[in-house]
Design a protein around this nucleic acid. Structure first.
Length: 421
RNA sequence: GUGGCUGUAGCUCAGUUAGGUAGAGCACCGCGUUGUGGUCGCGGCGGUCGCGGGUUCAAAUCCCGUCAGCCACCCCA
């Protein structure tokens, strides 16, 4: 009886070598950039109390329709995090750090029960930063600039930065009223879907891509025309900062982000190298009311999340950020069995070399093929003659040095010399 | 969640139109050197044709269902 075969769940995949090394390298680049900019690392749990996310978006699909949630063995309502900002703010409120602004970076998997597609997975990975405790527009600039520099560091060139301000409580209500009135007047001309959206969150009608909505959206009142003096100045200061850094951006007055908590500065990074609908490689914004809604003191905050999986797809299209090399520096061939090869390989690794070896006592020809495929530049051959003489043969696999037999005790220094040259 | 396209060896795919009982290239293994890779030659392993059911003397091929991937919508990273 054959046992049933299993496969990974829908929308979830095994990232295998060398893609996995590449993904980790992306995170390493980000960690370095964020660390040098004064951001500490936060590793928060993948599971949170369901309430953490219910607070952040009653009209967002991410929270209302796509969340993996369940009751655990104690009967507690648990969610697998669909995003990380809410977790970070929960951690901020819980630990109440006193040295503000609190700047952290993070990385890790998130879960959304969506219909999968290239660049859209049910388990996906993001890197991001959050800053809590300051509403200085220069914080906005720093955050956005860090995202921009990150794409640059990966070699991405086909990224555009879209900027908008969603206003705050001083001006958004007036705008919402104007927008709602405008849309209600044209309600029956809107798509069915948009009519539903209109009832829940009029702002979101603006990012409909349905044809029948486009004419109405094009004429709709814009938030940027309703910004209060203070909010308008804040936005202008952010823009001036980006200009001072020569970071190109585009004002996108209909940019509305999916999470409800955004206020004032919002932005999105879109890849023009990605031809499918999933072309957003990052996004973020301010959420000045979120800490309070999670039980903390009123605290301004801003951050972004960048999609690692989509970034790598964009890198494939742009031909940038290749997989890191994983080849060993030296391969050990074992023609004699016994313990000589395991000891030699262990010593090489202890000495700091990337060292691998062959197994299974196959023919020398077969072992040479394995060594060749490994791309190791040097091969060490442990054969009967060598063993008897206390020697090892070193062979050049890529250059024209051929092979020579050296004393067993000289292997480490000899390899250092050859790899150093 | 809605609609559409696709699913044959580890990988990329042909074969599906006109049902007759499975192929190529690459990869892998072995031989050509009784201790030597990359090129070349020869040989070989490998598939319940996504899965389940139906029609038929006969199904990779036709029908139904189901699962998965992809595309658009939606959503968003």
């Amino acid at each position: 009886m054959a046992s049933p075969k299993f496969q990974s769940l829908r929308g979830m995949r095994d990232v295998m070598s060398p893609d996995a090394e590449r993904q980790r390298a992306v995170v390493d680049v980000f960690a370095d950039l964020a660390g040098r900019a004064g951001y500490g690392h936060l590793m928060s749990p993948i599971l949170e109390d369901l309430g953490v996310f219910l607070r952040v978006g009653e009209s967002t699909d991410v929270v209302t329709k796509e969340m993996y949630d369940f009751e655990d063995k104690d009967g507690q309502r648990i969610a697998m995090r669909p995003e990380l900002t809410a977790s970070v703010v929960r951690a901020f409120v819980q630990h109440n750090p006193t040295n503000l602004p609190w700047k952290i970076w993070y990385e890790g998997p998130q879960f959304r029960h969506e219909k999968p597609q290239a660049g859209r997975y049910r388990q996906f990975s993001q890197v991001g930063i959050e800053v809590l405790g300051s509403d200085d527009p220069h914080v906005d600039v720093e955050v956005i600039a860090l995202g921009w520099r990150f794409y640059e560091a990966l070699g991405m060139r086909q990224v555009s930065l879209l900027m908008n301000s969603l206003g705050d409580e001083s001006c958004r209500p007036a705008y919402l009223e104007a927008l709602t009135r405008y849309l209600l007047d044209r309600r029956t001309d809107l798509s069915e879907r948009s009519q539903e959206t209109l009832d829940k969150n009029p702002l979101r009608v603006l990012d409909s891509k349905r044809r029948e909505d486009q004419a109405i959206i094009a004429e709709a009142p814009l938030m940027v025309d309703f910004l209060s003096e203070e909010t308008g100045e804040h936005f202008a200061a952010v823009r001036a900062g980006l200009e001072a850094l020569s970071i190109p951006y585009e004002i996108s007055p209909r940019l509305v982000r999916g999470l409800d908590y955004y206020t004032r500065t919002t932005f999105e990074f879109a890849s023009t190298a990605l031809t499918n609908a999933q072309n957003a490689v990052g996004g973020g914004g301010r959420y000045d009311g979120l800490a309070e809604s999670l039980g903390g003191k009123p605290t301004p905050g801003i951050g972004f999340a960048l999609g690692v999986d989509r970034i790598l797809l964009a890198c494939d299209d742009e031909g940038c950020f290749p997989e890191p090399a994983t080849a060993p520096e030296v391969m050990v061939l074992d023609l004699v069995g016994g313990s000589e090869a395991i000891v030699l390989t262990d010593q090489l690794r202890e000495a700091g070399f990337r060292a691998d070896r062959t197994f299974d006592g196959r023919s020398m020809k077969a072992q040479m093929k394995v060594a060749d495929r490994s791309d190791a530049p040097w091969v060490l051959i442990v054969g009967e003659d060598e063993l008897a003489q206390g020697q090892v043969t070193i062979r050049d696999m890529q250059g024209d040095a051929g092979q020579t037999t050296i004393d067993r005790g000289d292997v480490i220094t000899e390899l250092k010399t050859r790899l150093g040259a």
